[in-house]
Design a protein around this nucleic acid. Structure first.
Length: 426
DNA sequence: TCTGGGGTCCTAGGACCC
DNA sequence: TCTGGGGTCCTAGGACCC
């Protein structure tokens, strides 16, 4: 059996930890640049505030009901996430935990006796809540997809489930599937949901009764086939080893306000490249390709498109590297080539691809000896920046004033990761 | 006026090879 | 007038996730 442990309204819960007065009050957390709502408490949901909707649209409701609003504080969420996952690893064993996202983890319960499943799930939940203060829901079932179904139902019926739901008989599974609409299935998004409904498939149960071959032809090939098997309790998605090596690393941001000058664009691109290179070094990788894109602010009144065209360029490097300076150079060249004077831009991004382990970087006869020193320099920069949790050291091309930086008007202190922002009790 | 950021997997189709 | 068959590799784009 597999459990999925999922933090309730995670970002909001983190903010509430340090503002006990907000317990049972509506709270929302905004995306970068304070653009969209990306986390809501139950109280905020009840007021009719939608998920992923733009902040400005929900603003009347928010002001009317005095909803607490926060900009996202990823230092805080990252640190709380680590604490939650550590508790799980202590209880279930390090190798049985697969961190799926910042607020979710799958836990392998293969070795737990059937009559102990409920108790184990409850233990995980209660320990996390007691030690970290973050409330979680737990779903347990024979497959990942069914565990997700269980988790969702446990959240929907908190009063009866106490935040834990175990689906271990086929009877339980069938009942749960009947209560789950197709668009609430993990792996069914908007496009497939529309398609399925048009074919008269409405509940997860309906979908589970379709033949696998049908899934193969109508739901994206092996993906659909696998989904149907999982719904029927046949494990088709394994527990993954902790996968730390990403195949692509991206750093992209909206600007605080549209930008028209090349200098700002270049500063932003240099900054994002530095950040991406940092992530790359953290996983001991080296990248062989880098691409840069910039997005013009939509000029036309044709508002059907949320984004303007994306203007991008890609460079293949002579050899894979993780050195910031070697990545910044081509990135800035591309930024310069893409930029058109007279246009307004709202976003830029950098992506690193063709990532290989840095130990396997192909030797090149023409690599100068100085390379080792540069690698050490990068390591030092990373250490200093990490211990300060800030870009205290950066490349000059990243700029000092940074007029293009995103807006974060409701940022809470980094309570758990900065000495000078510690929570104070008077 | 104002709509995030960072990923994954899969398929189709083109280019190319023998 | 008629122009094979079978591969591989790569990229773009769609769909999904949180």
């Amino acid at each position: 059996m597999i459990a999925i442990v999922d933090c309730n309204s995670f970002y909001c819960s983190c903010e509430r930890l340090f503002k006990p007065g907000l317990q049972h009050k509506p709270v929302v957390v905004l995306s970068n640049n304070d653009g969209c709502i990306i986390s809501r408490t139950d109280e905020a949901k009840k007021l009719g505030i939608g998920m992923a909707g733009p902040y400005f649209e929900a603003r009347p409701l928010i002001e009317k009901h005095n909803v607490a609003v926060f900009s996202s504080n990823y230092n805080l969420y990252g640190d709380m996430s680590w604490r939650v996952m550590e508790v799980l690893r202590m209880i279930a064993g390090k190798d049985n935990v697969e961190v799926y996202s910042v607020d979710e983890a799958f836990v392998n319960l293969e070795h737990v006796a059937t009559d102990q499943l409920q108790a184990t799930a409850k233990l995980m939940k209660e320990t996390i809540e007691q030690w970290t203060g973050i409330a979680v829901s737990v779903g347990v079932a024979p497959t990942k997809v069914l565990a997700k179904v269980a988790n969702r139902l446990s959240k929907k019926n908190k009063a009866t489930s106490q935040g834990v739901m175990v689906l271990h008989t086929q009877e339980d599974q069938r009942e749960a599937l009947k209560k789950t609409m197709i668009d609430d299935i993990w792996g069914v998004g908007g496009a497939y949901a529309d398609k399925l409904r048009n074919m008269g498939i409405v509940t997860a149960y309906d979908l589970s009764k379709m033949p696998q071959a049908w899934g193969k032809s109508f739901m994206g090939g092996v993906v659909g086939e696998r989904l149907i098997r999982e719904l029927n309790g046949i494990q088709s998605m394994k527990m993954e080893d902790e996968l730390v090596t990403k195949k692509m690393i991206a750093t992209t941001r909206m600007f605080g306000a549209p930008v028209a000058d090349l200098k700002s664009i270049k500063e932003a691109v240099a900054t994002y490249t530095s950040r991406a290179a940092e992530k790359l070094r953290r996983q001991h990788g080296a990248a062989k390709s880098i691409s840069v894109f910039i997005v013009p602010k939509e000029q036309s009144h044709n508002s059907r498109f949320r984004h303007g065209p994306i203007i991008s360029s890609n460079t293949t490097l002579p050899m894979a590297t993780s050195l910031t300076n070697e990545l910044i150079k081509p990135a800035l060249q591309m930024a310069e080539a893409l930029f058109e004077r007279g246009r307004l831009y709202k976003k830029a991004g950098v992506m690193l691809g063709h990532i290989v382990p840095d130990s396997s970087v192909q030797g090149n006869l023409f690599v100068p000896e100085t390379k080792n020193k540069e690698t050490m320099l990068m390591g030092m920069m990373d250490n200093i920046n990490f211990s300060q949790r800030d870009d205290i050291l950066k490349f000059a091309s990243s700029g000092i004033t940074r007029n293009w930086k995103m807006q974060q008007n409701f940022h809470s202190p980094r309570y758990t990761s900065r000495w000078d922002e510690l929570f104070e009790v008077k």
